[in-house]
Lab assay of single mutants.
Amino acid sequence: MTGIVKWFNADKGFGFITPDDGSKDVFVHFSAIQNDGYKSLDEGQKVSFTIESGAKGPAAGNVTSL
């Protein structure tokens, strides 16, 4: 699925993605970002991701920028 990064705190390594389908915002951890180098996201960035079952509920996985 796709969405827009609502916010991401690079110091803490997590944030939230707002899915394009209008569903509830999804937690994203830096370890789910699939790019080389520094793993961070920018507010407003368009991303593709999967929904994984995290310890505290749904979380984004396999996050790639579009």
Rank of each mutant, 00 (worst) to 15 (best):
K56N: 12
G61C: 14
D25W: 04
E52Y: 13
K24C: 10
K56Q: 09
M1H: 12
G57W: 10
I4H: 09
D25H: 05
K46C: 10
M1K: 11
F27A: 03
E43M: 15
K56M: 12
S40H: 11
N9W: 12
G3H: 01
K56G: 10
A55D: 14
K46F: 09
T50H: 10
Q34T: 13
T2Y: 08
I33A: 03
A60G: 04
F30M: 11
S48G: 09
I4E: 06
A10R: 15
P19W: 04
G15K: 00
G54N: 11
V47L: 03
S23G: 13
G37W: 08
Q34R: 11
W7Q: 03
N9L: 08
V47D: 00
V28M: 05
F14V: 06
G54M: 10
Q34N: 14
D25K: 04
G44I: 02
E43G: 14
T50C: 11
I4A: 06
G3E: 00
I17M: 02
S65Q: 13
A32D: 06
G15Q: 00
A59P: 02
D20Q: 07
P58D: 11
S40D: 06
F16H: 03
S65V: 15
N62R: 09
F30S: 10
G22D: 05
V26H: 02
L66M: 12
F8S: 01
G61V: 15
E43V: 13
G15H: 00
A10L: 09
M1A: 09
L66P: 07
V47W: 01
D20M: 09
H29W: 04
S23W: 05
G37L: 10
Q34I: 15
D42R: 15
G61M: 15
V26D: 00
T18V: 13
T2G: 05
G54Y: 11
G37R: 09
G54C: 09
T64R: 13
D20I: 07
A55C: 12
L66T: 09
G61Y: 14
S53R: 08
L66R: 05
S65A: 13
G15E: 01
Y38P: 14
I51T: 06
N9D: 13
T64G: 06
A10S: 14
F14G: 02
E52G: 07
G37V: 09
T64M: 13
S53E: 15
V26E: 01
A59F: 15
D36E: 15
K24E: 13
A55L: 14
S65I: 15
G3S: 00
V5R: 00
D11Q: 13
I4M: 09
Q34K: 14
A59V: 15
V26W: 03
A55S: 12
I17A: 01
A10E: 08
G44C: 06
K6D: 03
F27S: 02
D36I: 11
T2V: 09
V63Q: 01
G44Q: 05
T18Y: 08
L66I: 12
V5F: 02
G44E: 03
A59G: 06
D25F: 03
V63H: 01
S48L: 12
K12A: 09
S65D: 09
D21C: 08
H29Y: 05
D42F: 15
D36N: 12
P58S: 09
L66N: 08
D21G: 08
A55I: 13
S31M: 09
K12N: 05
Y38D: 10
D25M: 06
N62F: 11
I17E: 00
W7P: 00
K12G: 05
S65Y: 12
K6Q: 05
D11W: 13
G57R: 10
D11Y: 15
I4L: 08
F27H: 02
S40P: 07
S40R: 13
I51W: 09
G37K: 09
Y38R: 06
V47Q: 00
V28Y: 04
S53K: 14
A55Y: 13
P58M: 09
T18P: 00
F30A: 10
K12D: 04
D42M: 14
S40A: 12
K24N: 11
G37P: 09
F14R: 02
W7M: 05
T2P: 04
F30L: 07
N9H: 09
G57D: 04
Q45K: 05
A32E: 07
T2D: 04
V47R: 00
S40V: 12
G3R: 00
S23L: 07
S31H: 08
K24G: 11
F30E: 07
I4N: 05
M1P: 05
T18N: 05
P19L: 07
E52S: 10
Q45L: 08
G44T: 03
P19I: 05
G3V: 01
D11K: 14
D42C: 15
E43L: 13
S31V: 04
H29I: 04
T50R: 09
